[in-house]
Simulated scan of single mutants.
Amino acid sequence: MMKRNFIFIFLLILSCSHTLPPPPVNFSNKPVVIKEFFLGPGDELNVFVWRHPDLTLTTKVDPWGRIFYPLIGEIQLKKMTVLDLQKRIQKGLSKYLVNPQVTVSVKTYRNLKIMVLGEVKKPAVFPIDRPITITEAISLAGGFTLDAKQTSIIVIRGNNQNPTILRLNLKGALTKADFSQNIYLQPGDIVYIPPSIIANLERFFKRFESILRPFVDLSVGVLIWRRVEEW
């Protein structure tokens, strides 16, 4: 009798849970998707100008995020990608050359670190030697745990006083080859994978499957599962 009472209470909680309002969210569901990697202090760059070996050089971004280039002078690289810098140099050289052909590449990236926390198998701080995407970072951390909420991955970017909070849905990237939110991480980014209440309930349900099966038929089990999914 006690076991039957427990099952009844458990089913009642599950059947009512979908009526509860979702918890408030203080950040946008539409993150700023940054697909390029910003240059920064310590990056070593190769600049190649076709047919102009005197303008072809290797330079390093100084601690203030600047480089100095012949004929142009100081170039501030704040929030500038390789392509942005390439266009900036090409525009500057256009005053002296006809249709300059400029190619910029990164010879050596600076010492980069990111942090992956939450529902991953090996949460840690990871040094990286190149730009990586968020799915690559999660792979470095051993992948998701069973309780990971893949539809609400949080990226904390910037300083502690004024951080930028991004909310990403990676389920499509992993199941439907939709990589629109598989952004490149920036140095110092913190990736947090929250636990999924749905995942916890699913595991809890499976643990009690042997107890529930004698008391409920398949149709009731499907109904319970749908309601858990809706929560």
Score class of each variant (00 low, 15 high):
Asn159Lys: 10
Phe179Pro: 00
Glu209Ala: 15
Ser219Gly: 08
Lys176Trp: 01
Arg157Ser: 08
Asp54Ser: 08
Gln86Cys: 13
Ile190Phe: 07
Ala124Leu: 15
Gln101Trp: 01
Ile193Gly: 02
Val33Asp: 05
Phe179Ser: 04
Ala177Val: 03
Pro24Asn: 02
Leu85Ile: 07
Glu36His: 15
Thr133Arg: 15
Val98Met: 13
Lys3Val: 09
Phe204Ser: 11
Leu39Trp: 11
Thr103Ser: 14
Leu112Tyr: 08
His52Ile: 04
Gln150Lys: 14
His52Ser: 11
Asp62Glu: 05
Asn111Gln: 14
Ser196Thr: 03
Phe48Lys: 08
Tyr184Val: 08
Val220Met: 13
Ile9Thr: 09
Arg207Gln: 13
Pro24Tyr: 07
Ala199Ser: 10
Lys176Pro: 01
Asp178Val: 14
Leu71Val: 13
Asp54Cys: 01
Asp217Gly: 10
Trp225Cys: 02
Met115Leu: 13
Pro131His: 08
Met1Ala: 15
Arg110Ser: 12
Trp64Phe: 15
Ile134Phe: 11
Pro195Ser: 11
Leu166His: 06
Ile134His: 04
Arg207Ile: 12
Val106Asn: 06
Ile72Asn: 07
Phe27Lys: 04
Val104Phe: 03
Leu39Arg: 09
Pro163Met: 05
Ile154Val: 12
Leu20Phe: 10
Pro31Leu: 09
Gly42Val: 10
Leu168Trp: 09
Ala173Gln: 09
Gly65Ser: 08
Phe126Arg: 01
Lys91Gly: 05
Ser105Pro: 03
Asn5Thr: 04
Thr108Pro: 00
Val222Trp: 11
Asn26Leu: 11
Tyr109Trp: 10
Ile132Phe: 06
Arg130Gly: 01
Phe37Ala: 11
Met80Phe: 13
Leu140Pro: 05
Ile211Thr: 12
Ala141Lys: 03
Gly65Lys: 06
Met2Gly: 05
Ser15Cys: 12
Glu229Trp: 15
Val25Thr: 12
Phe126His: 03
Asn111Val: 11
Lys121Gln: 15
Gly40Trp: 06
Pro53Phe: 04
Asp178Ile: 14
Asn159Asp: 15
Thr58Leu: 02
Ile193Ala: 04
Ser180Pro: 04
Phe204Thr: 08
Val32Pro: 00
Leu85Trp: 06
Asp84Pro: 07
Trp231Phe: 15
Leu223Val: 10
Val47His: 03
Gln161Val: 02
Phe38Trp: 15
Val82Met: 06
Pro70Asn: 12
Glu74Asp: 14
Glu119Met: 05
Ile114Phe: 00
Thr81Phe: 07
Glu44Gly: 06
Gly172Ala: 08
Pro63Ser: 08
Asp217Tyr: 01
Glu36Asp: 15
Ile153Glu: 03
Thr59Asp: 08
Asn5Pro: 00
Gly65Phe: 09
Ala124Ile: 15
Lys113Asp: 03
Pro31Glu: 04
Ala173Ile: 07
Val32Tyr: 10
Val220Pro: 09
Ile165Gly: 00
Ile132Thr: 05
Leu93Lys: 00
Leu112Val: 10
Gly188Pro: 00
Gly92Lys: 00
Pro24Trp: 06
Ala173His: 07
Phe205Lys: 12
Glu230Phe: 13
Thr133Ala: 12
Gln90Ile: 01
Thr81Ile: 07
Asp217Cys: 08
Pro163Ile: 02
Pro127Ile: 08
Glu136Asp: 12
Ile134Arg: 03
Leu12Lys: 06
Leu93Asn: 01
Met2Trp: 02
Ile165Lys: 03
Leu174Tyr: 14
Ala173Thr: 11
Phe126Tyr: 14
Glu136Met: 07
Glu119Thr: 00
Gly118Leu: 00
Leu140Ser: 05
